[in-house]
Computed example of a mutant assay.
Amino acid sequence: MAQLFGKTFAPKDMGSKAFADTIKEEVASYVAASGIPVNGDPLTWMKSNDCKYPHLAMLGLEKFKMLGKHFVAVTLQVTIRYKLNFHDCTHGDIWSCLSGDCGTGTYTLYVVKQESSGDWCQREGIMTRRVSSNAPFELWLNSGDWISNINNIISWRAVTRVELRNRSDISKANTSPQTTILPAVRVPSNCQRDFSLLMFDPDGDEVKCRYGNSALLECNPCTPPSVLSLSSSSCTLSFSPTSSSNEGSYVVQLVMEDFPRQTITLTQTSGTQTTITTNNAISKIPIQFALKEMFDHQCHRD
């Protein structure tokens, strides 16, 4: 018993009963009782049972003092900024959790621009989420309908991956790449056009673009426009002159990702580590817009 309880519980004058016998009886009483529930709080239990099990409660509290730093509750706050596009500025949508622990969120949605013809309205959202750890999670939009289009995309679907684990190269959490684009991009059907998407990564990562993948639930369906080709490394879309039969509206559903420029380690608050190479995307954001193709008699570059 002396080896278990140490000097903190050195034998005292217990009268006719030996200290070791007192401890044995206390342990036996604890074992016979129901004890701490599986989902119970050990500290709360110790405080409420310190009269019934005084030595066990004191021992438990001593152990918690030594290990206290490993039991600190962690709550993180992450802010996500995004833009949504609608026909009407009164419309809105809410991100929901797709995978991982997404925590709880609050949302604010502002009007950025109303197109003069009333064709579209762009709104900017600010979402604040509180999560219990820095584990990655995914959010998605999975409602609403697209405008009528040639590649037959009916419903909205977009996914973003949020990476909060600590990066070994910058000693802090990752920041996703940033971009913006108009809700509707117009292109002459008889003119060659290249569109280099705006892209910036605060962490200095390499940024690449790709079409959405239905297997990853990034769109539904993910059919890309037949009139476009994509350069992934430069995030450039190329449009070549086409026939009048292809004129109309297309839905473009892209995903922008950031890749480290060297192999790094991502560390979770639990201590779990994951190695990320230059071939592994760290996070991702969706880029979706309408491409409107129409004939231009003059066909000139703006």
Results as ranks from 00 to 15, higher is better:
V185Q: 02
G15C: 04
Q268C: 13
C121Q: 01
F195A: 14
L4P: 00
N213C: 06
N149H: 00
T223N: 11
C219I: 08
Q262G: 09
S214I: 15
W156M: 06
S229P: 04
V131C: 05
S243Y: 06
V78F: 03
G68N: 15
Q262R: 12
S16K: 13
A33L: 05
T274K: 09
S245W: 09
N152R: 13
A281I: 00
L197M: 15
N174M: 02
T44A: 14
E138I: 07
I181G: 03
N151W: 01
M66Q: 15
K172T: 12
S117R: 04
T236L: 00
C102R: 12
T22L: 13
P241D: 11
R81G: 04
P42I: 11
V162W: 07
E247K: 04
I153K: 02
C209I: 00
S132W: 03
D41I: 07
P286K: 14
Y211K: 10
Q262T: 14
Q77Y: 01
D296Y: 14
H55R: 11
V38I: 14
N142Q: 13
G15V: 04
S132D: 11
L197S: 15
P286N: 13
V131Y: 03
K24Y: 09
R130P: 00
I287Y: 02
A173T: 07
Q192F: 09
R261N: 15
T223Q: 08
I285S: 07
L197Q: 14
S176G: 05
M66A: 15
E293C: 08
S226M: 01
H91K: 13
W45A: 13
N39D: 12
T175G: 02
V207M: 01
N151H: 03
N280D: 15
H297I: 13
I126H: 01
D88M: 05
D41V: 06
D145P: 00
H87K: 01
L76F: 07
F86T: 03
I285L: 14
V78N: 07
G35T: 06
C299G: 10
L228T: 09
K47F: 14
S189K: 02
T179F: 06
V187I: 14
S176P: 01
S176N: 11
P221Y: 10
F86C: 03
